[in-house]
Computed example of a mutant assay.
Amino acid sequence: MENVTDETSNPFGMSVPGGAAYGYGDANADFHFIGDSPARHGGATTGVPFTETEAGRRLQSVLHEVGFAAEAYSDEPRLSNTFLSYAHPGVTEGEPTDAEYADQERFLDAELRAINAHILFAVGDRALAYALDQHTSLLDKIAPDTAARHAEQVRGRGFLVVPVREPEEWTDADRAALVSTITDLLDSDYRQTKGVATTIG
Rank of each mutant, 00 (worst) to 15 (best):
L186A: 10
D172C: 05
P163Q: 01
T198W: 04
S37Q: 02
T171Y: 12
I119C: 14
I115E: 02
E76V: 02
T193A: 12
T8Y: 14
H41I: 01
V179P: 07
Y190S: 06
A69C: 15
P89T: 08
G124Q: 01
I200R: 03
A147G: 12
V48F: 07
D26T: 08
R191A: 11
E76A: 14
V123R: 08
F159K: 05
A176I: 00
R57N: 13
A110F: 05
P167C: 11
L132V: 03
A148R: 12
E54Q: 15
L84P: 10
P11V: 13
N10V: 05
L79P: 11
E71T: 10
Y86E: 00
Q134I: 02
G35N: 03
Q153I: 06
Q60A: 15
A147H: 08
R58L: 11
A173R: 06
T181S: 15
L138N: 11
A143Q: 06
R155H: 15
R57P: 04
A151F: 10
D109N: 06
V4R: 06
Q153F: 11
G124S: 02
Q60G: 13
T53D: 09
P96D: 00
L138C: 06
V91Y: 09
N10Q: 05
P38M: 02
T146S: 05
G43F: 05
R106P: 01
V196Q: 06
V179Y: 08
Y73W: 10
A99C: 01
A131Q: 02
F50H: 12
P17R: 01
A27D: 01
E105F: 07
T183W: 07
D75A: 10
T92G: 13
H64I: 02
A87Q: 01
G195N: 01
A70S: 04
F121R: 04
K194N: 03
G42D: 00
E95Q: 01
G43Y: 09
E169A: 14
N81A: 14
S15T: 08
A148S: 14
P144V: 07
T51G: 10
D36I: 09
E111R: 04
E105T: 03
T136G: 11
